[in-house]
Design a protein around this nucleic acid. Structure first.
Length: 488
DNA sequence: TTAGGGTTAG
């Protein structure tokens, strides 16, 4: 059955609205699960229309809304937070459809990323009122956002208050929160909390692995080993994952010799089986250290032992070949991967594209971008960012703007990095008009909920005042005013 | 989304 939304692939907003109305009115039966196309067409419509127009044009009662469709749309609108929240709120007034817990979680994540905590807590309250949450995942999201916004103390308070919101706390939520702190490099804080609460939550191997991995991320392998000693003393046995954490820790800290010794030790002790993650860690570790021969040897060894490489293994191997060997050799491995029947993912393409860009083969990088579409592997924001960045570095601003336009027309919205790279590039080239483009990009990014650095505002404002463009400078100042109260 | 391996470039 052809989706009723199939006609939405029209880039002209006016005709788009008409086709939506027509197709929605024709809709009488229950639609099949949301196709990606439906989600992107609806996202495109939501982006084009202001909320009022949306209420009038989008026939909410006629679309067969499902949590799956709503989640897909929220994902599409990830880099346009204000629109995503408007859409979510609009749909919340729907007469029959009610949001799922997962959709609430998405919306909460988006609001928290915009640092709009008032909305976050309002959503939590609504979630509770409708009896769909909040759940441990909701709190994982909220605490993670507080930590990454530089408010780890607030995150701890939120974690400790979970029960007041009717959300049960257990070892899982404890471990999740420890991991949130560790991943944001607040490892000491995580460790202190761990010491205080480990008895209450009956900390397990996973808790210790999380803390050890945190210290490894900080390249503090000795501290990680200390944590594991503590673990053994408390009567818990290390697992393969524990060993993989330490192995990775050595390589991350640049202790290649120690890593290799540890790997041999794991091999020697038969009781410790090794898996694809172990091998991927070592291939990547040697590669990053520039020891390509060793990386290749370990890669071959794993195949010889019958341990199947995963797509991640190939990605790691291809990446280090690009960086420390030769992009053509990396492409040979990419081709070999295809021959063996693997399906490359966006990361695979991204590392190859980056490799090509890095040696100035921009045309071939663009070919791979097209190839992604043919292979039904959607380019993501990182894909575009790499190409835009390298075009900018080469001074090919017009080409990078062309790629940027492709994003705007397609299914991938630019993120903070995209805007920062483009705006900086506008200052590298002393051409009249560039300042205006930079200013327009700046306003667009603010409208989409991104917060530019103060430096960026000042740079553009100074330029505009020097060229006597007072009116546009005022517009920029208004945009700056919309950046929130805790802006600095 | 209870833990371990793979994305930019600096």
């Amino acid at each position: 059955m052809l989706s009723p939304l199939h006609k939405l692939h029209i880039r002209n907003p006016t005709s788009l609205v008409c086709s939506v109305k027509l197709s929605f009115y024709n809709l009488t039966t229950i639609t099949p699960p949301a196709a990606d196309d439906d989600a992107s067409s609806l996202s495109f419509l939501i982006l084009k229309l202001d909320p009022q127009a949306l209420t009038h044009n989008l026939e909410f009662n006629s679309v067969y809304w499902t949590p799956d469709l709503v989640n897909k749309i929220l994902k599409h609108l990830w880099n346009h937070g204000p629109k995503a929240i408007q859409f979510f709120n609009l749909l919340e007034r729907h007469p029959t459809y009610t949001h799922s817990a997962a959709s609430f979680d998405h919306a909460i994540d988006i609001a928290a990323r915009l640092r709009n905590y008032k909305t976050v807590w309002a959503l939590v309250a609504r979630m509770r009122k409708r009896r769909v949450g909040p759940n441990p995942k909701t709190f994982a999201i909220i605490t993670e956002r507080y930590v990454s916004a530089g408010k780890p103390d607030k995150a701890v308070r939120v974690f400790l208050s979970m029960q007041e919101y009717g959300c049960q706390q257990d070892l899982n939520s404890f471990n999740t929160f420890l991991d949130v702190l560790c991943k944001s490099r607040r490892v000491e804080m995580a460790y202190n909390l761990f010491k205080v609460l480990k008895r209450r939550f009956r900390a397990d191997t996973i808790s210790y692995n999380i803390i050890a991995n945190g210290f490894c991320l900080l390249k503090r392998t000795p501290r990680a080993l200390e944590v594991l000693r503590e673990m053994v003393e408390s009567g818990l046995e290390p697992t393969l994952k524990t060993y993989n954490v330490i192995l990775n820790g050595y390589f991350k800290a640049g202790q290649v010799k120690e890593g290799w010794q540890f790997f041999l030790e794991m091999k020697r002790r038969r009781r410790c089986e090794m898996d694809v993650v172990t091998y991927t860690t070592v291939v990547h570790g040697f590669g990053v250290a520039g020891e390509i021969q060793k990386a290749r040897q370990v890669f071959d060894e794993m195949i010889g032992l019958g341990i199947l490489p995963s797509v991640a293994t190939y990605n790691a191997y291809i990446q280090v070949l690009c960086k420390k060997d030769n992009v053509e050799n990396a492409i040979l491995v990419f081709e070999e991967m295809l021959k063996k029947g693997y399906t490359p993912n966006a990361t695979t393409y991204n590392v190859v594209i980056r490799g090509l860009c890095h040696v100035g083969k921009m045309d071939r990088a663009m070919e791979y971008l097209d190839k992604m579409k043919d292979d039904e592997c959607d380019p993501n924001v990182q894909t575009y960012n790499v190409i835009i960045r390298y075009y900018c570095d080469e001074g090919e601003i017009d080409k990078s703007l062309k790629v940027f336009d492709r994003m705007g027309n397609g299914e991938c919205l630019p993120n903070l990095d995209t805007y920062n790279v483009l705006i900086s590039a506008m200052f590298g080239r002393k051409r009249s008009g560039d300042l205006m483009v930079a200013g327009k990009l700046l306003i667009e990014m603010v409208d989409r909920g991104f917060i530019p650095r103060k430096f960026t505002f000042n740079r553009i404002l100074n330029g505009l005042l020097l060229t006597g463009n007072q009116d546009f400078a005022k517009e920029i100042l208004t945009a700056q005013g919309r950046c929130g109260s805790d802006y600095c």
